[in-house]
């Protein structure tokens, strides 16, 4: 509750600042100024996703599939009231799709990107990630697998590239829904190793009955100027709490040892007789 109030106050304070920003038409969130593609809340459908543009204005969103014919590899979905209803092009085309919103002006390009998992077996996203899709890109190396996710206290690698070429020494900023902010720099291969902060608040005393793993939004962003153009790119997704939060290794080991103790009498029995087959 206290956090909600803090976010509300922060929103009131940040509001006037964002109102003066160039992108005042697009809604923003309190925890970042970066452009985002956020999933709409409410009932989720298996083959369809509703994504909301935040801090960025564009007429349509591009969805890149991991496989399929050229006409389905990249599809455009019109934004209506800042929201796009995207879908997978075909069954068996692959799980992860890359979603991009691009806002261009004569001297700048702003990109919001995210990945959407459609539970749609097929090609892996290796080629999808390896293929350049816009100017300045933040590319996960790799994306979390099914049943996996980014989690606090974990390190994940992200490639930053411009026009398909890795950017060395490029600064990458991580911001999370819980207010953490940290920076990382890409190495000689253009890859930054990002440490997700341990910033989840303690779980509420009364557990919510709903399902779905607890998670929060994060955004990685990077800026680069070249050839008179200013590029800004952002990649947002969700991360979860440390898997061992609320868990006890000690109790786990104790239960395991109890099982071993229960099985120990089996080892004390007399040896079996030799079977006279030889």
């Amino acid at each position: 509750m206290r956090r909600t109030i803090l976010f509300f106050i922060a929103g009131l304070l940040v509001g006037p600042v964002t109102a003066q920003h160039d992108h005042s038409a697009a809604p923003t969130v309190a925890w970042t100024q970066q452009p985002l593609l956020l999933p709409e809340t409410g009932r989720r459908e298996r083959d369809v996703a509703r994504l909301r543009a935040v801090g960025i204005s564009a007429p349509s969103v591009s969805v890149h599939a991991p496989a399929g014919d050229p006409e389905v590899r990249q599809r455009e979905f019109t934004l209506s009231d800042g929201t796009a209803r995207i879908s997978s092009a075909a069954p068996q085309i692959g799980n992860y799709h890359w979603v991009v919103l691009r806002e261009a002006s004569p001297d700048s390009v702003r990109i919001a990107s995210t990945a959407w998992y459609f539970s749609n077996p097929g090609a892996s996203p290796e080629v999808l990630l390896a293929t350049p899709k816009h100017e300045l890109e933040i590319v996960p190396q790799p994306l979390p697998r099914e049943h996996g996710q980014y989690r606090e206290s974990e390190k994940w690698r992200f490639l930053v590239r411009l026009h398909g070429q890795p950017l060395v020494g490029q600064r990458l900023t991580l911001e999370t829904e819980f207010g953490s902010r940290s920076q990382f720099v890409t190495d000689a291969s253009g890859v930054a190793t990002v440490l997700f902060p341990r910033d989840f608040p303690p779980p509420p005393t009364e557990q919510a009955g709903g399902h779905g793993r607890q998670s929060a939004a994060f955004v990685l962003s990077s800026e680069h100027a070249e050839g008179g153009q200013q590029y800004l790119t952002a990649f947002n997704l969700r991360y979860g709490p440390d898997a061992e939060r609320g868990r006890s290794l000690g109790w786990g080991a104790a239960f395991g040892l109890a099982g071993m103790l229960a099985a120990a009498p089996l080892l004390r029995r007399r040896q079996s007789r030799e079977v006279p087959h030889a």
Binding site: G256, A258, G259, A263, L267
Partner: peptide
């Protein structure tokens, strides 16, 4: 965990 501990030892016998 109990099952796991049990099986690890029981599988010897």
């Amino acid at each position: 965990n109990f099952l796991f501990g049990f099986i690890i030892l029981a599988a010897l016998a």
